[in-house]
Amino acid sequence: MNRGTPSRRRNRNTLRYGGNRLRYAGIVALFLAPSLVPLTLFTLVPMVSSLWVALHDWNLITPMEFVGLDNFRDLLTDGGTWAAFGHTLGYIAGYLPLVYLLGLAAALALNTALKGRNVFRAAYFLPVVTSWVVVALLWRWLLSPANGLVNHLLGLVGIDGPGWWTDPTWAMPSVILASAWKDLGFVMIILLAGLQAIPGELYDAARVDGTSAWQRFRYVTLPLLSPSTFFVVVISLINGFQVFDQVYVMTGGGPAGSTEVVVQQIYDLTFRYGRAGDASALSWLLFVVVLIVTIVQVRGQRRWVTYA
């Protein structure tokens, strides 16, 4: 990161071009403009105007009406907002442990001298490169209450399968199941990289000390894997708070609003109810929540993350 910027280099650059400042400014502009102009237009301007919209009542058609922080106040007193955050947290509470444990199991299994492990690795990873819409449709079909494969198989062993995404109780578990299936390959790859970085001598030494396999896992593998675990948790939480594609396709927030997560609510507020101001306010609320959660984790990592 800092190899390009020691002062020695800076001096040479300045010396070299000090005589022709205008020309140098032109070169800087030439290199920066291709990214700076689009980033300004399509990210920075929307960022700022989103805050502006959040301070107004606006149905996207009639003129905006300034309301100050009312949108934020309304959101905080609106049961829908709390319900949406509740559903999102429910999703995370199911998804994160499931995807981590499955990913860890796959990583541990593939970190052995297994024949064909590259083939297995490729197979487990395939859903990661598949688009969310494809995966969501596939699982909607697999979990179709009447003719879906899952209930068909359950029927063969005498179990009467639930209504999955048609049933308010089972809709969120359906989304969680599909999400964990899609993302476990991603978690596996990150953890596999972490496992391969653990020096073999540590296991040898632990063996000499007469430890059991469980003890080696608990006192060597888990602590040394903690930086990878930390990374997975941070990324999964960010993605979890922003969950949308699979919900939109599998349930559309239903049934009976049981999977109405925050981003689904932002979408509905804007494009179904024409409440752009509230939607912008809610999206900033979400952003702040994610930011705080991430900062808390980065701060808290000292307690449980071991850097070798």
Binding site: M47, S50, V263, F287
Partner: peptide
């Protein structure tokens, strides 16, 4: 730092104003 800041803003925040733009 400005570049990095844009990285932290998710698409969900941008989608409404970007659509209006």
């Amino acid at each position: 730092l400005v570049y990095l800041a844009t990285l932290m803003v998710p698409m969900q925040v941008l989608v409404v104003p970007l659509f209006i733009e």
